[in-house]
């Protein structure tokens, strides 16, 4: 009796249901308030933070009332405006950027050659591994005294330390990227008779592009810092100094507002390259290809 009851309890009829079409539902949503919309904009929030910091600086500078230690924000900005208008800062910045570009480009090129050499043979891999292990932790600026002896006071020394700062970071990332290329992509390339350099150019470099781009970003940041530091140490090369030299000069003349103006310029150039140049490259390449979200 009990058994039949449990059995019949398990037996259940088939159930068929009518589902509602989408037009039967009212779309349930409510627009956000204006404040919420504004708060959701990342760039607006970031600008808010910047305004807050600038205000704090301004208030502190006025309260301190000692332009030799901390000039207020407004003084730094006006010094910046003046020197941009009279062409000093653009000239200095251009001098820095020129040297930077030469150093960055040759460092990247050397890194590329070194990495291609590294992936083509075991000895090459060992060579790159050893070299990066030795030189990557070595701050480029530590080589500056040597560079000054070898290349003299001039852009030669600057380019030398720049290459050093860019090369190892970029080649480490390139090698990691090349190693991470999927075996399927490699097989596809070999299926189409791609070998040697054309295999590198048409399969490995694009497939490893996210890593390469990350390496270039790190390399650029390293190079920018190294350059400013090196310019602060000896500065003038063939009569026209860069931004580091501008800061050094201003400090010597106790024109602290200009020192801050120089620092602001360095920050702005750094931000511009990071958020404009590299962002555009990312959007056009790895994001478009779905290799990075």
């Amino acid at each position: 009796m009990l058994q039949t009851q449990t059995l019949s309890a398990v037996e259940r009829p088939n159930i068929y249901c009518e589902t509602l079409g989408p037009e039967q539902f009212g779309i349930i949503q409510k627009p956000l308030t204006l404040a919420e919309k504004i708060y959701n904009q990342v760039w607006l929030r970031k600008i808010g933070i910047l305004v807050f910091l600038a205000l704090g600086w301004e208030i502190y500078g006025r309260w301190l009332d000692n332009p030799l230690l901390v000039p207020p924000f407004s003084a730094a900005v006006s010094a910046l405006m003046t020197d941009v208008a009279n062409g000093t800062i653009p000239l200095r910045a251009w001098a820095s950027i020129q040297v930077l570009m030469i150093g960055f480009a040759s460092g990247t090129l050397l890194a590329g050659l070194l990495t291609v050499f590294a992936i083509s043979s075991k000895l090459g891999t060992d060579f790159l591994d050893t070299m990066t292990a030795m030189f990557n932790p070595l701050p480029a600026i530590a080589l500056l005294p040597l560079a000054l002896i070898w290349f003299g006071l001039g852009s030669g020394s600057l380019v030398f330390v720049l290459i050093h700062s860019v090369m190892w970071a970029v080649s480490l990332n390139m090698l990691a990227g090349f190693r991470g290329v999927s075996t399927t992509a490699r097989k596809v390339g070999r299926n189409y008779n791609l070998t040697g350099l054309s295999f590198v150019a048409r399969i490995l470099i694009p497939a490893a592009f996210p890593s390469i781009l990350a390496g270039l970003k790190i390399g650029w940041a390293f190079a920018w810092r190294t350059l400013i530091a090196a310019e602060l140490v000896f500065g003038v090369s063939s009569g026209k100094g860069g931004l580091g030299w501008y800061i050094f000069e201003s400090k010597n003349q106790l024109n602290i507002a200009e020192v801050f103006a120089g620092l602001l310029t360095i920050i702005m150039i750094g931000l511009a390259v990071e958020n404009v140049v590299f962002r555009v490259i990312e959007k056009r390449t790895v994001q478009r290809w779905g290799m990075q979200s």
Binding site: S182, T184, A185, K187, V188, R190, N191, Y192, N193, I203, P206, A207, F209, T285, W289, G290, M291
Partner: peptide, 19 residues
């Protein structure tokens, strides 16, 4: 060696070049 007279279609979806 591999050659274009024998084209391989793999199981993996990443055989298409994403770029």
């Amino acid at each position: 060696k591999p050659g274009p007279d024998r084209i391989m279609v793999f199981q993996e979806f990443d055989q298409l070049l994403p770029w």
